[in-house]
């Protein structure tokens, strides 16, 4: 037994080394940077974090990151759930084609699809505004006004991320035993009752894990906001990633940028603890 686990360890060693190099080292280095002064010559402990607490823009970024991530994840989950049901009900022969097509937004590199969206939202040449103009509707400042700009970046995030939810939910739906639905039908359960009492409880763990995973990825998003609004107008669409880049790289304050990016860790850790604890609890119950 001991020998087997040693072999397993050695076989996993390349992956461990890779993770250490590409994840642990940068994470440790980011923590180190966040404890330095602006010119990176002096140790300031938690000074950068205390400095951020006093900045109005920082709290705006915290608020926006939460609005961005939570709104996007809720809508991605809802749309994914609905579309997964539609796809699940398509006869098996045509299903693959639909699955493939619906995954397109998710498989296109986001930087590329965001550029296409940027053109659609372009201040001067928005294709959406062109269509609106055909109906005599005034042009919409998609990225020029706080409300619309927030709507735009969340919309694109949903467009890119919903297919991931769809495919995860579809896999979960396929694993629900058909007998449960048959039993529910015999008991006279309505469509809604079947969803509420059979489908949702059977998918709960997948929903929780998918939401957690998506929450992490959405919180850490960079490309969508960077390409579409670069955090504007007047910083009202910045999220942690983009503001960290602006402060650290563009603002020549790498330690403060590192401190901003590290703020995601406690927020996501709390979310992860709650969601994973719930999953473990349900696992133990079953």
């Amino acid at each position: 037994m001991q020998r087997k686990s040693t072999i397993a360890f050695f076989m996993a060693l390349p992956l461990i080394a890779l993770i250490a190099t590409l994840v642990l080292y940068p994470a440790g280095y980011a923590i180190h940077l966040a404890t330095l002064n602006k010119s990176m010559e002096r140790f300031v402990g938690l000074g950068n974090f205390f400095f951020l607490f006093k900045r109005e823009t920082f709290w705006m970024v915290v608020q926006q990151s939460c609005i961005f991530a939570i709104t996007a994840v809720i809508f991605k989950a809802l749309i994914g759930f609905v579309v997964a049901h539609f796809v699940h009900n398509i006869p098996a022969r045509g299903q693959r084609k639909w699955r493939g097509m619906l995954l397109v937004p998710w498989v296109i590199p986001p930087a590329m699809s965001c550029l296409a969206w940027l053109w659609l939202f372009d201040p001067s040449y928005s294709a959406f505004n062109w269509i609106l103009a055909l109906f005599g509707i005034e042009p919409v400042p998609w990225t020029g006004h706080t409300g619309w700009a927030r709507f735009s970046v969340i919309l694109v995030n949903i467009w890119i991320g919903a297919p991931f939810f769809m495919i995860m939910y579809l896999a979960a739906l396929k694993s629900v035993p058909e007998q449960l639905y048959e039993a529910a039908a015999i008991d006279g359960a309505s469509w809604w009752q079947r969803i509420w009492y059979v489908t949702l409880p059977m998918m709960r763990n997948i929903i929780a894990i998918t939401a957690l995973f998506s929450l992490i990825v959405t919180f850490a998003n960079f490309d969508i906001v960077r390409v579409l609004t670069a955090g504007g107008p007047i910083d009202t669409t910045h999220i942690f990633g983009t503001w960290s880049f602006r402060v650290g790289i563009e603002g020549y304050d790498i330690p403060l940028g590192a401190a901003v990016s590290l703020f995601m860790v406690p927020i996501l850790a709390v979310a992860a603890v709650f969601i994973l604890r719930d999953i473990t609890r349900r696992g133990n119950e079953s």
């Binding site: 201040p123 001067s124 042009p139 400042p141 998609w142 990225t143 020029g144 006004h145 700009a149 609004t229 670069a230 504007g232 107008p233 007047i234």
Partner: peptide
């Protein structure tokens, strides 16, 4: 200036 000037970048 254009209504969406706050969203302009260097290409606009």
């Amino acid at each position: 200036l254009p209504a969406d000037a706050p969203a302009w970048d260097d290409a606009s």
